[in-house]
Simulated assay, not measured.
Amino acid sequence: MLQTWTMWLWAKATRLLVLTTYKPNVTHLYNQVTLKPGQRLYMVNQLYPYTVKFTEETSTPRPVGEESKSLKRPNQMSEDPAKKVSTTSHTDHHRITDGSPPPKKTPEACSDKSESAGHWSQGLKASMQDPQMQLYKDDRVVVIKDKYPKARYHWLVLPWESISSLKVLRSEHCDLLKHMQCVGDRMVQQCPDAHKLRFRLGYHAIPSMSHVHLHVISQEFDSPCLKNKKHWNSFTTDYFIESEDVVAMLEHHGKVTVKEGMSELLKLPLRCHVCRKEQSTIPKLKEHLKSHIS
């Protein structure tokens, strides 16, 4: 009888579980063991799953020295004492859990994560697919509202064809860019304020956003999103290349040439694009621009 009882106990204790304890007391289903901080508990059981509950005696306060050491331990667990440590196999990695299985990753969650992990410069590719952003589309291009407009009217004309930048444009893209310009002109014609506002159509020499896009922007620059010198100079200096000039370069040279030192244009003093009078700050510039708005 004793031998049978011993064999039963041994069979019940054949699953290996190695735990680094962080509480002084561990309560098992059948007994309670008092452990010191950092002491390891070895249990064996291959037939039945083990559930180990960590408890802490409040009647016996821990020495101050031990508490400070525990706080400095980099891998110290901060789970609630009622949390359980469970394992399903002696080859599984141990994890802290509240008894419920980990949530499964859905395809939607994965896609959201990958999209959010994408660089912000790729944002145009997502915006051009958003029906709420689209103002016009055909089989070659789509027009969207600029998320951070620098004027009352600021639209972007983008080709469905994947074209990363002006540098990769070639002569075969001439028809596409002419179509983009025609669509931009059509947007201006349909604008209710077209009779009193001036518009420009063009490209940034060194755009911050990937995917070629044509800016269609009104020239009063009345927008809270226009906040700094870089914003202003990117639309009012040679950094902004007219659409006709880009098409002409493709027709004559088969490529678009961006001059050296274009980025330095963004550092130029603030000057009114109408009278060329220099202004010291953006607020003063905006106040000055009101004199040119009829």
Rank of each mutant, 00 (worst) to 15 (best):
M1E: 09
Q3L: 15
W5D: 11
L9I: 11
A11I: 09
R15H: 15
L17Q: 09
V18M: 12
V18Q: 13
L19D: 09
T20R: 14
K23A: 05
K23Q: 08
P24F: 05
P24K: 13
V26H: 01
H28G: 05
N31Q: 15
V33S: 11
R40F: 07
Y42G: 04
M43P: 11
V44L: 15
V44C: 09
N45G: 11
Y48A: 12
T51R: 14
F54A: 08
F54W: 11
E57G: 08
E57C: 10
T58S: 15
T58R: 15
P63V: 02
V64N: 02
E66H: 10
K69R: 06
S70E: 15
S70P: 08
L71E: 09
N75E: 13
N75W: 07
Q76D: 02
M77C: 11
A82Q: 12
K83I: 08
V85W: 10
T87F: 15
S89M: 10
T91W: 14
I96A: 11
I96H: 03
I96N: 03
D98H: 07
K104G: 00
T106E: 02
T106W: 05
A109L: 08
S111T: 11
S111M: 12
S111V: 09
H119F: 10
Q122L: 10
G123K: 07
L124V: 12
L124H: 03
A126K: 13
S127D: 14
S127Q: 13
Q132A: 14
Q134L: 01
Y136E: 01
Y136G: 00
K137W: 06
V141C: 12
Y148D: 02
P149T: 07
P149Y: 04
P149V: 01
K150M: 06
K150T: 06
Y153A: 12
Y153F: 10
W155N: 06
L158D: 02
W160Q: 02
L166E: 11
S171G: 03
S171P: 00
S171R: 14
H173K: 05
C174L: 12
H179N: 04
H179I: 04
G184M: 00
R186A: 13
R186V: 08
M187G: 07
P192D: 04
K196V: 15
L197R: 06
R198H: 12
R200A: 02
L201V: 01
Y203D: 00
P207N: 00
H213F: 09
S218H: 06
Q219Y: 05
E220K: 01
E220Q: 08
D222Y: 09
P224Y: 11
L226P: 00
H231C: 08
W232P: 06
S234H: 02
T237W: 06
D238G: 14
F240A: 06
I241K: 08
E242A: 14
E244A: 12
V247W: 00
V247R: 08
V247S: 10
M249D: 06
L250C: 05
L250G: 05
L250W: 07
H253K: 15
G254H: 00
V258L: 03
V258G: 00
E260W: 14
E260N: 09
G261H: 05
G261I: 10
L265Q: 04
L265E: 03
L266H: 03
K267Y: 02
P269E: 09
L270T: 04
Q279K: 11
S280P: 03
K284M: 01
H288K: 00
K290R: 12
S291E: 02
H292E: 04
H292C: 05
S294E: 13
